[in-house]
Computed example of a mutant assay.
Amino acid sequence: MTEQFQCRKCGSGWGGLNTCHCQRCHVTFSTVANFDRHQRGGECLTPKDAGLVRNGRRYECYGQPGEQERAARMQGKDSGGLTGVEGLPVPEAAFGGVSS
């Protein structure tokens, strides 16, 4: 699968709209905040030195430990469907369906 964006210099590809690719060190980060974490005094830190880890995407991308698991919980993937407040199921009626 071809990624949505690609660096012209190093050829790295990524697909997330919030994903950031550093044009200096050519490392890809899952968010702007993680990108910012890797910069200190105008220099790039390695992901490890910035406290970041590979985040399980199909392309090399770094984020905070546990980031993918939190994202999956927010999307309801760990409960088998949509979730509401505190992980409670969202009634179908909230989406125009009929609640039994």
Rank of each mutant, 00 (worst) to 15 (best):
M1D: 11
T2N: 12
T2C: 04
E3I: 00
E3G: 09
E3A: 10
Q4R: 14
Q4M: 09
F5G: 06
C7N: 10
K9C: 07
K9H: 10
G13W: 01
G13R: 02
G13Q: 03
W14R: 01
G15Y: 01
G16L: 15
L17Y: 05
L17M: 08
T19E: 09
T19A: 14
C20I: 08
C20P: 00
H21G: 08
R24K: 12
C25Y: 03
H26C: 15
V27G: 00
S30W: 04
S30V: 13
S30F: 03
T31L: 04
V32W: 03
A33F: 06
A33D: 14
N34V: 01
F35A: 01
F35W: 15
D36N: 14
H38D: 00
G41R: 04
G41H: 08
G42F: 09
E43C: 08
C44M: 10
L45E: 12
K48F: 09
A50S: 10
V53C: 08
V53G: 05
N55A: 06
G56P: 09
G56R: 02
G56N: 07
R57P: 00
R57W: 11
Y59S: 05
E60A: 14
C61Y: 00
Y62V: 04
Y62G: 06
Y62M: 07
Y62R: 03
G63R: 01
P65T: 12
G66Q: 09
G66S: 11
E67R: 00
E67T: 02
R70K: 13
R70V: 14
R70T: 13
A71H: 05
A71L: 13
A71M: 11
A72V: 03
R73Q: 11
R73V: 11
M74G: 12
Q75M: 14
Q75F: 09
Q75V: 02
G76K: 02
G76W: 02
K77A: 14
S79C: 10
G81K: 07
G81I: 06
G84A: 08
V85R: 11
E86Q: 05
E86G: 08
G87C: 07
L88H: 09
L88R: 12
L88Q: 13
P89Q: 08
P89D: 11
V90F: 05
V90E: 11
E92A: 13
A93S: 15
F95K: 04
F95P: 02
G96P: 11
G97L: 12
V98R: 08
